[in-house]
Design a protein around this nucleic acid. Structure first.
Length: 469
RNA sequence: GGCGCUGUACCCAAGUGGCUUAAGGGGAAGGUCUGCAAAACCUUUAUUCGUCGGUUCGAAUCCGACCGGCGCCUCCA
């Protein structure tokens, strides 16, 4: 039984979907005004793990991740770049998809964009006004949080405490400092849409309510995002959706912990905001995923070069076994029974992930598995086709299917045929040198190739090589 | 001021009342294999879980105090 920690109830709960086997998930996506950074990437990867594991568990998952393509940050960026806000959104939306593909994220079933849902947004705001939860002032529409009884239930905040120590800026036109904008009237030169309240654009929070409602229904299973979104963004989403529909909004709220850089908060002033795009040039995408998954999703995580290098070396063990098994199968082993217990590892993996997506524990299961398989191979008994296929299947289902940390095939396919032939030629020359006991030459070939990122391994079956990328 | 999280080996990190006299990864040391390596395997690396008390037959796990670290309350994944 899968258990998930629910921010709303502050408890680990049994996961019972509304309409099994269907599961609906809404994950807060990027505001497309810049390349996303490695902190965003953590949230994206962890929501990808949630989704992949639910699929692994047999659910039919509908996964929506929004793109916020109109808001103040985009307008500011457009002004700074001297281009239209639409162009900004287009540029960074495209970049977003390129980057998540690199990270091995499954594409969402739906990527709703705010600007494509203006009618739905307006309809929801109208419903809120009709329900007495929102009011218009000179073309702006605000949500009146005092009219929503449950305001503060997600973040555990008491409205009165919020106000007393408030740093909320005073806005004369709002009835309460905590009231937030549903619709913002357009200032001269700003992009706008026509609405019953005049020309303007949606506030930040309303798009998620309107779009999740349209694509997943009034009530859906899981809503996830970074823990900084709990207040006010998610709190406001609940007020909007439940205030408009009168029905419960997301059943389970999942929040991902923050990423620090060298024990410091990522911030522009510290100059330690790293784009995923740049980081992927330095570290393999699987290494980044593995690094993220080695810590539970709810904990904060410290990003250091040392930790990434440690992750990179650890990941080698997974890929080494994958290579070993693949090449053993290519060697056409005999079929027949084996005595390896795969079931035990599957059960342990499920237990780990069922416990609130405990990926660090699941990774430990994979490493236990790797050691057992390597030992089994080292002992050399019953190394049948069935055994290797079983090992390959486990790695593909868990390390690849759920965790996404196996080295992908893409790189190998990018090798040119000539490069492969040249490397094989060098391997052959080296073997000849070894047979003549010309170790000076054979070691030179090995060392030179190593500096090119190619590691040679001599096995009983002959010399093989591995690219370190 | 309000709300919440957190302190586990050299580093990262799971475990949150007995299955653990503490998983897994990295690092380090020794060994097997090898011409030497690499990979893989074996052994070693926390009688101890920030400190001090308490509850309990039993605590890293619960409670209290204290000492650290951090987040949110404002845009933020």
């Amino acid at each position: 039984m899968l258990k998930i920690y629910n921010t709303l109830t502050r408890k680990k709960e049994d996961f019972i979907p509304l309409n099994p086997p269907a599961v609906t998930i809404y994950s807060c996506g990027p505001t497309v005004y810049d390349y996303f950074h490695i902190g965003n990437a953590r949230s994206f990867v962890m929501s990808d793990i949630v989704r992949r594991y639910l699929i692994y568990s047999g659910y039919k998952v509908k996964f929506a991740m929004n793109l916020t393509d109109i808001d103040d940050k985009i307008i500011n960026k457009a002004n700074a770049m001297g281009i239209d806000s639409k162009e900004v959104a287009k540029k960074f939306s495209d970049a977003f998809f390129e980057d998540i593909d690199k990270l091995g994220l499954l594409r969402a079933d739906i990527n709703p964009r705010a600007t494509e849902h203006i009618p739905e947004i307006i309809a929801m705001i109208e419903a809120l006004i009709k329900n007495g939860k929102a009011y218009e002032v000179n073309g702006d529409v605000f949500y009146e949080i005092r009219k929503f009884d449950g305001y503060g239930k997600l973040s555990g905040k008491n409205i009165d405490n919020l106000e007393s120590g408030s740093r909320v800026e005073v806005n004369e036109i709002k009835r309460d400092p905590l009231d937030f904008a549903l619709w913002k009237s357009a200032k001269p030169g700003e992009p706008f849409w026509e609405s019953p309240w005049g020309k303007g654009r949606p506030g930040w929070h309303i798009e998620c309510s309107a779009m999740s409602c349209k694509h997943l229904g009034d009530t859906f299973d899981i809503h996830c995002g970074g823990s900084d979104l709990i207040f006010p963004h998610h709190e406001n989403e609940i007020a909007q959706s439940e205030g408009a529909t009168g029905k419960p909004f997301a059943k389970i709220w999942m929040h991902f912990g923050f990423l620090n850089i060298d024990n410091e908060k990522m911030s522009k002033s510290l100059g330690n905001v790293f784009n995923l795009r740049d980081m992927v040039k330095k570290y393999k995408p699987e290494t980044l995923r593995f690094f993220y998954e080695q810590t539970h999703y709810a904990s904060s995580l410290n990003f250091t070069a040392e930790a990434l290098e440690s992750a990179d070396r650890g990941l080698e063990k997974v890929n080494n076994l994958f290579d070993t098994v693949k090449s053993a199968l290519a060697g056409k082993p005999d079929s027949g029974a084996h005595s390896f217990d795969f079931e035990k590892s599957y059960i342990a993996f499920k237990e780990a992930m069922d416990d609130d997506f405990n990926s660090p524990k699941a990774i430990a299961v994979v490493f236990d598995f790797i050691k057992e398989v390597n030992t089994y191979i080292a002992n050399g008994d019953n190394l049948t086709r069935e055994f290797y296929e079983g090992a390959l299947e486990f790695l593909k289902k868990t390390a690849d299917g759920v965790l996404g940390i196996l080295r992908t095939e893409k790189v190998e396919n990018s090798d040119s045929g000539l490069e492969e032939e040249l490397i094989q030629l060098l391997l052959k020359l080296r073997v000849d040198a070894k047979l003549e006991k010309n170790y000076a030459l054979s070691d030179k070939i090995r060392n030179e190739l190593l500096t090119l990122g190619i590691t040679i391994q001599d096995t009983k079956e002959g010399s093989t090589y591995k690219k370190n990328r």
